[in-house]
Design a binder for these strands. Structure first.
Lengths: 215, 215
DNA sequence: CTAAAGAGTGAACACTGTTCACTTTTTGAA
DNA sequence: TTCAAAAAGTGAACAGTGTTCACTCTTTAG
């Protein structure tokens, strides 16, 4: 969807200029979302940020929704990249599986507002763009990991790998979502002593791995 | 927070009238959220629904935020009630624990838009209202359940029960959140065969229980 | 050099939450 | 019953939102 190839050359100057401006809009929007969240991003303030009129934005993007969707896709692509790197590392399987869980959550929390935005409304199943979104490619990775674990006898092979992957995704997403939405999730919800993010992720990954394991 | 006592009597007629109207506003808002989601609820359309002027709403509620917060608290109170009923039932512990997980998710999905709304923005930790919110009472229940499991030797007593409860909450919330946001979560994300909600919840509860268990 | 295509804009439309001066209704006490 | 005070209700306005459109100005290509 995103033509990210570094083909800055062999492009007409007009096209180069267009891309440069398009990118500057995206960068400004990215910064505003990271700082203040998606709901505080407005076309007018975005236009002001880059010294354009609000209407000018619409020469580059169909709608605010499309603009935000492009940023979200790029965000998930980054998350996906990090998870994929772990998945293909040289570590033993259980280590890679554990790390995949951790990295998904950690990268999601690297830009909490982006992650929140990606799940801020009910996603229309009809939309083609959503079906091919990076969110769902991340899910494919999870399925592959579960299948690998089943082949190795680490995970219960009697269970449907796709359903199992959905369960794991739910566990990961839940942790990322709660930490993104509740800043005091780790700092003692009702006055309990706080825990470090690492300690929590360590335990959470333990729980998930134990939940999947044959024994 | 909500004075829900059925004290319709021993109240001045003025106060009764006031409560009746306040309730009718809440009911109309509830219906609109259930039908179209929180972001489609507007004070103007709400006012029209009950044949009042927009400004009239503000005689009963400080802000739209307060109105919505009250509905969310009532929603979580209902969820909490169902979970609590399971927790205190006569079943053996493991059965109750499993059912608690299932009931939380099922009740959350009974009104998906309400659940989405409860986690639609970053919750301000400073706010007193949030600290005493029903969301966090639900968490207390979870902690109690984990402690019970540890006392019975079913769950690993070496682990911090509060951290463990946070992990379980993440697993439950993740499933509810994904199913609420992605209507096709169970219907095959990328063309895979669909699975029933019951089958998924069954497996997800299995994973969580296995994750907690000592063996 | 000129015509067409693209970039950019101000003003407007239809919304949103919220406030405020204002009128009408209801209430409680003299 | 009368009358002031309190409460309920309102239309208009403010400041903000996403978006569109006629319009100008610039850049491009033939």
């Amino acid at each position: 969807m995103v033509d990210n190839a570094s083909s800055l050359d062999d492009l007409s100057p007009a096209e180069r200029r267009r891309r440069r401006i398009r990118d500057s809009i995206l960068r400004a929007a990215e910064r505003m979302i990271a700082d203040q969240g998606e709901e505080r991003l407005s076309i007018r303030r975005l236009a002001e940020e880059i010294d354009y009129s609000p209407a000018a934005i619409y020469k580059y993007f169909e709608s605010k929704e499309e603009l935000v969707a492009e940023l979200q896709d790029a965000f998930f692509q980054r998350v996906l990249g990090h998870v994929d790197a772990v998945r293909h590392s040289a570590e033993p399987f259980r280590c890679r599986a554990r790390q995949s869980v951790r990295v998904y959550i950690e990268e999601a929390l690297h830009q909490p507002h982006h992650y929140i935005g990606a799940f801020s409304c009910v996603v229309d199943p009809q939309s083609d763009a959503d079906q091919s979104s990076m969110k769902f490619r991340a899910f494919d990775y999870l399925v592959a990991m579960v299948r690998e674990g089943q082949a190795l006898g680490e995970f219960d092979a009697a269970k449907d790998p796709i359903t199992l992957a959905k369960s794991v995704w739910a566990c990961c997403h839940g942790a990322a979502s709660l930490m993104a939405h509740l800043p005091h999730f780790l700092n003692g919800l009702n006055g309990e002593p706080e825990i470090g993010r690492d300690a929590f992720l360590e335990l959470h990954a333990d729980v998930i791995m134990a939940g999947l394991s044959t024994r």
